[in-house]
Simulated assay, not measured.
Amino acid sequence: MTRSTSDAEIVVGYDGSPDAAAALDWALEQARRDGRPIRLAYVFEWLTVAGWVGPGVTPGMWPDEQARQQVEELVNKAAADAAAANPELTVRGEVRDGPPALVLEESSAEAGLLVLGGRGHGGFTGLLAGSTAVSVTAHAHCPVVVVRRDTAEAARAGHITAGVDGSEPSLVALGFAVEQAALRRVPLQVVRAWQPGREHWNLTGEQARDAALAEGRAELDEALRRWQERFPDVEISVQTATAAPAALLIDSSRQAQLVVVGTRGRGGLRGMLLGSVSQQLIQHAHCPVAVVRER
């Protein structure tokens, strides 16, 4: 049975790379806020090509039991160091075998949150350039946060930004964003981008824009009303604009500590994870990015 995300552990995809270290730091700070345990998961993928070098493994060594022992020592040390620096938290490490994307997706079924570095090495090589990030964020059973090393500092300041388009996945993401804003005691900025569509074909450009923005704002007001009643102390602002979704969200991320989006949307956010928007966010946002998928 899948546990509630309120008490399920935070899983960190860890391979010893600088971005993985940034992801671990982010996860530790999150755990200090909500008290959840942390599990470092190293996915050990056995490869048989010449010249294979695993993270934390002596160059030139073939993947054998000694290589696996080095990996286990790497993960256990990282977990022990994190636990020693945060005695109030429970931190453990594990090494699992298999394709990284598949193993992480499986791990997410029992997790409350999955945190990944932007780029890794070994089992996470090319995390953002290839299909692994798309697969994990699209199919994980819990929210996924991607932390690039160059955005780690931004995670400690600013507001929370949520990209919303009125679709059910985006409203699930909105709920996650509100909860994070309340937990961190920071404002929430809700962003809704609009681009011309067929639904207003009979109107002029300016009329279509005004009609779409008005409809979008009405949808948002209804959704936000429920969350505002539940979290009255969260300051919420709304930004609606006729702009490309990725550009609008990336711009908002300059002053944010976290950008939150759903897995799939409609209108301006259609194909969030199957097209270029999510990739642009994960690679170019100025802060960590959370992708939330309905369980």
Rank of each mutant, 00 (worst) to 15 (best):
V144P: 05
S135R: 14
A129Y: 03
G123A: 14
T90N: 12
P63L: 09
L74C: 09
T90A: 15
R148E: 03
D97T: 06
H159W: 06
Q70K: 05
D150F: 03
A155T: 11
V49I: 11
G158S: 05
A50W: 04
T151Q: 07
A109M: 06
V134G: 13
G98C: 11
A84Q: 14
V136W: 05
V144K: 06
C142G: 06
G117Q: 04
G98T: 01
W62Q: 12
T125G: 03
G117A: 09
V53C: 06
W62A: 15
V103N: 02
L74Y: 04
A155Q: 07
E168D: 11
G166L: 02
V95L: 08
A133W: 09
G93M: 07
L128I: 09
L102F: 10
G60K: 10
L102Y: 08
A154N: 11
G130V: 00
D81Q: 08
R92Y: 01
P55G: 13
E168S: 11
G51F: 02
P169E: 04
L102S: 13
P169R: 04
A78G: 11
A133M: 15
A157Q: 14
D64R: 04
W52P: 00
S107R: 09
G93K: 04
E105R: 15
G51S: 07
T161C: 15
T137P: 10
S108M: 10
L128D: 00
R119K: 14
E105C: 15
L116I: 09
G123L: 13
V75N: 11
G130T: 00
G112I: 13
A67K: 05
V164M: 04
G98F: 08
L104A: 10
V164G: 10
S167I: 08
G126M: 07
A79N: 08
L113W: 04
A83Q: 15
G117V: 03
I160C: 05
T58N: 05
T58V: 15
P100V: 12
M61F: 05
G51P: 10
G93V: 05
N86K: 08
G98Q: 07
P63I: 08
E94K: 05
E73T: 14
E72P: 00
R92L: 02
G123C: 11
E88K: 09
R149L: 13
S131Q: 06
S170I: 12
P169W: 04
T132G: 03
P143S: 01
G51C: 14
V57K: 05
S108Q: 06
K77H: 12
G117N: 11
R96V: 14
R119N: 13
A50Q: 04
H159L: 10
G54V: 01
T125Y: 06
T125A: 15
G158T: 07
E106R: 12
G120Q: 07
K77Q: 13
W52C: 10
E65R: 13
L116K: 06
G158E: 01
A84T: 14
L116Y: 10
G126V: 02
T125D: 13
K77A: 08
P143Y: 01
W62K: 01
G93A: 12
A129P: 02
A78W: 01
G54N: 08
L74S: 08
G130P: 06
R92F: 00
